[in-house]
Amino acid sequence: MDTIKKGFIPVMLTPFSEDGAVDYEALGHLTEVYLRAGASGLFANCLSSEMFELTDEERLKAIRHVMAVADGSVPVVATGTFGGPVSRQADFVKRVADTGVEAVIAITGLLAAEDENDRTLDERVMQLIMETPGIPLGFYECPVPYKRVLKPEQLERYVDTGRVIYHKDTSLDIGQVAEKIHLTGKRSRFGLYDAYMGHAIESLRAGAAGLSCIQGNYFPELIVWLCDHYADQSKAAEVNIVQQFLIDNMDVMHDVYPTVSKYFLRKRGLNISTFTRRNVGEVSRAVLRNIEQLYADYTRLSNRLELQPLF
């Protein structure tokens, strides 16, 4: 990812119409919102995209649509592994690569089962690399079907092949994040993007290439602001306020996600339905109260930081 500006890579939502069809017009508008916010790249076809609820053709069409809207302005990465034998996963990796993405992302929990050891995972990763010659790859420690966190020395071995240029870390462990960065930092094309906002500032200061978090599906411009200013001593007080805001609202933003993030974006002015194909739970009155409070709190924070409106 040596062509990318260090910063925020959104884990993109998939908008649907009320009948459950993918709303490609809204997907285009959403892509433009991420770009206006200052995103450094885009992660299409991920868990936030409800990728497991899409067909193969919907996955590919959505990726192509995002690529067309981005029009080369930023790199796009997208998931390409969905289970089964490695040879089958490799075949779909090639189809995703044919869309022109910067890297195709492999789900760690789909390359080895929960009861299989690290040696098995290593063998399958190397098989995937061998069966997808020339295709830049990345890894995503996706929570579904289960979260398989790579050990720092594993990631180092994979990056040493010269084929792995992206890693989305969900370890929630700043020690592991720092060690992964330490072991892979000398590879100019590789970037680690942290998903956990509880230690966002520490991760950026440790050398993370950027952030890739669900909070960016509420206020992408705030995550961009944090990536831009985390080391700015003149804004140290504001940086700490933003970090605490993200920590304080962690549970609110994860509850009934991504339905609530679509609701939040709609409230901000994006023409997007709250329909989701995933069964993520009920949007209760309590959930709505929390989101309304989040909206009010964010409005005040945005005004304090003098962030430009996206809508």
Rank of each mutant, 00 (worst) to 15 (best):
2 D>G: 15
208 A>P: 07
139 F>Y: 06
36 R>T: 07
53 E>K: 15
298 Y>K: 09
123 E>I: 05
135 I>A: 06
234 S>N: 13
79 T>P: 05
150 L>S: 01
85 P>W: 00
265 L>Y: 03
244 Q>L: 09
292 E>K: 15
134 G>T: 11
58 E>K: 05
144 V>Y: 13
273 S>P: 00
308 Q>C: 13
138 G>T: 03
101 V>L: 04
236 A>M: 05
246 L>D: 06
246 L>C: 07
142 C>S: 02
205 R>L: 13
195 A>D: 15
195 A>C: 14
22 V>P: 08
9 I>E: 03
305 L>T: 05
295 Y>D: 09
135 I>W: 02
133 P>F: 10
21 A>I: 12
111 L>G: 00
260 V>W: 03
32 E>M: 07
154 Q>G: 10
136 P>L: 14
278 R>Y: 10
219 F>Y: 13
308 Q>M: 13
162 G>A: 03
44 A>D: 04
72 G>N: 04
285 R>V: 11
70 A>H: 08
5 K>W: 03
305 L>F: 06
293 Q>D: 09
272 I>K: 00
204 L>N: 02
13 L>G: 05
261 S>L: 10
214 I>A: 04
112 A>M: 04
56 D>L: 06
35 L>I: 10
114 E>K: 12
216 G>H: 06
285 R>N: 15
11 V>R: 00
222 L>E: 01
249 N>Q: 01
18 E>F: 03
208 A>I: 09
102 E>D: 13
222 L>R: 00
117 N>L: 11
133 P>N: 11
259 T>N: 12
273 S>V: 10
284 S>G: 04
247 I>Q: 11
47 L>E: 03
302 S>I: 08
95 R>D: 15
307 L>S: 09
126 M>F: 08
149 V>Q: 09
82 F>G: 00
11 V>H: 06
65 H>K: 15
244 Q>V: 07
158 Y>Q: 00
259 T>F: 08
207 G>Y: 00
146 Y>A: 03
48 S>A: 15
123 E>P: 07
2 D>H: 14
60 L>P: 00
144 V>W: 09
136 P>V: 09
169 D>T: 12
170 T>V: 10
51 M>P: 02
258 P>F: 05
10 P>E: 02
139 F>V: 03
102 E>G: 14
293 Q>I: 06
131 E>T: 02
248 D>L: 11
141 E>F: 01
53 E>M: 15
234 S>E: 08
283 V>Y: 04
197 M>P: 07
201 I>C: 12
78 A>K: 02
267 K>T: 12
261 S>Y: 01
33 V>H: 01
143 P>S: 03
148 R>I: 03
306 E>N: 12
35 L>Q: 05
283 V>W: 06
164 V>F: 07
140 Y>W: 12
118 D>K: 14
223 I>W: 02
282 E>L: 14
153 E>A: 10
298 Y>C: 07
279 N>K: 12
192 L>D: 03
103 A>N: 10
231 A>G: 08
224 V>W: 05
4 I>T: 13
199 H>M: 12
208 A>Y: 05
29 H>N: 15
234 S>Y: 06
173 D>G: 04
57 E>D: 08
105 I>P: 00
95 R>G: 10
209 A>M: 14
